[in-house]
């Protein structure tokens, strides 16, 4: 099995896995970073969203062989103290119900705000449409993103 040197949350990790192993399972099974969640395995639900060089990606659908030198950021590495404005806004609006999809939601929202600091309601809805929340916290997610955007501006 090939060896990969991965840059994850500012640290280098060496793993030996099959080249078709999705990043999701490398993170969960090998690095033991468990915040990134499995939801569908086909890039439809967004629970596994991470950042690859700052861009939101579905880690279930990215094979480890495609990562190369790109920097991986997971929910655990989004901020040093768990105080990224999006994380704070999530707590302020008490967004989670079951909470399972929220790491993916937060990672997608953080990527959105990184390239669109003041998104319109429509832009938020369009960008967040790939992340399913089965509990139905969408209205709170919408508000939390607005709050985070205000704080970041």
């Amino acid at each position: 099995m090939p060896n990969y040197s991965l840059r994850i949350n500012g640290q280098v990790h060496e793993v030996e896995v099959a080249e078709d192993t999705p990043v999701l399972w490398v993170l969960r099974d090998h690095i033991k970073l468990l915040g990134t969640k499995y939801g569908c395995g086909i890039g439809q639900c967004g629970a596994c969203t991470i950042h690859l060089d700052g861009l939101a990606m579905r880690s279930c659908s990215v094979p480890i062989s495609a990562v190369g030198s790109q920097k991986i950021t997971t929910i655990e590495g989004l901020s040093e103290k768990g105080n990224h404005p999006v994380q704070q806004a999530w707590i302020e609006h008490d967004v989670p119900q079951c909470g399972y999809c929220q790491a993916g939601q937060i990672m997608n929202a953080a990527a959105l705000l990184a390239d669109t600091p003041s998104p319109s309601d429509k832009e938020i809805a369009a960008r967040m449409n790939g992340n399913i929340c089965r509990c139905g916290t969408y209205t709170r997610i919408q508000k939390a993103i607005k709050t985070a955007a205000e704080k970041m501006s």
């Binding site: 033991k32 970073l33 468990l34 915040g35 990134t36 969640k37 499995y38 997971t74 929910i75 655990e76 768990g82 994380q87 999530w90 707590i91 008490d94 989670p96 909470g99 399972y100 929220q102 790491a103 937060i106």
Partner: peptide, 23 residues
């Protein structure tokens, strides 16, 4: 009184909480 989810912080920072996270 409105009290926030006691697991809110753990959820938003990706701490292991769920069955799938058991190690």
């Amino acid at each position: 009184q409105g009290k926030k989810n006691v697991d809110g912080r753990k959820i938003t920072t990706g701490e292991p909480l769920f069955g799938i996270d058991v190690q």
